[in-house]
Amino acid sequence: MITLDQVSKSFQNNSGEFKAIDAVTFTIQDHERFGIIGESGAGKSTLLRFINALETPDEGAVMVDGKNIHQLNKSALRLYQKQVAMIFQEFNLLNNKTVEENIRLPLELHAYPETIPMETVLDFVGLRDKRGQYPKDLSGGQKQRVGIARALITRPKILLCDEPTSALDLGTTKEIVDVLKKAHDTFGMTIVLVTHELEVIKELCTRAAILENGMLTDVIKIEPPKNKKSYSSYRKRALEVLSHGSD
């Protein structure tokens, strides 16, 4: 269980200090698919980075399974970080490594008790035939699938997703959402997803926290989509936005 308890964080910018996160509290249950939504600059990514200790709150605590992760010593923190994987908006692949080498990267850093075999993970994300290629030869969706495979290979307990579909078109977004759902169904990890795309949240998450100017406004339960095809096609969305309906 992940609990953010009254966490706050301020940053310096040109006009002085501003509060990016202001006394935010919520809990994420084990195996949950939890979303954090809000507009740009609302503090979503900062909250996500609290959970894997990339950022430290100025005040408050981030408790994971009863332990304040920001008070762990170096080796305990590293042990904790082994259980947390992250995927990024810009994929963050190493461009000088092949698909397979990128996926294997976490295994070169730590010894993991239980990992997923390379063949299985490649099949899982549908990249078996791309294993020897370099990121420059892949599409955005394929790069993100490499990112997901790199995260899954260590069988993480928590998967953090920082705007994983924001750089992708609608069709590819759906593919990525499907892969994440399948990963959750298969491996049962907790997923924490940060995005401003409401459709992605609706499709993937069961609860979500809404942030506004660094403050938590609501934690809502999300109704699963009634219609299996509720995920908008590009055409449907374009019609909705541009002409309020099809003629």
């Binding site: 894997n52 990339l54 923190l77 590293r78 904790y80 970080q81 082994k82 947390v84 994987a85 992250m86 990024f88 810009e90 994929f91 963050n92 190493l94 461009n95 000088n96 490594k97 990267l105 976490p106 070169e108 850093l109 730590h110 953090l160």
Partner: peptide
């Protein structure tokens, strides 16, 4: 790219790992 360092840190890479397995590779 800044994201490379962020990735290494998110994986709990030590400083030598960050340098040898991420920075020098890229």
């Amino acid at each position: 790219p800044r994201g490379v360092i962020e990735t290494a840190q998110s994986m709990g890479a030590t400083l030598p790992q960050l340098v040898w397995k991420f920075l020098y590779v890229e």
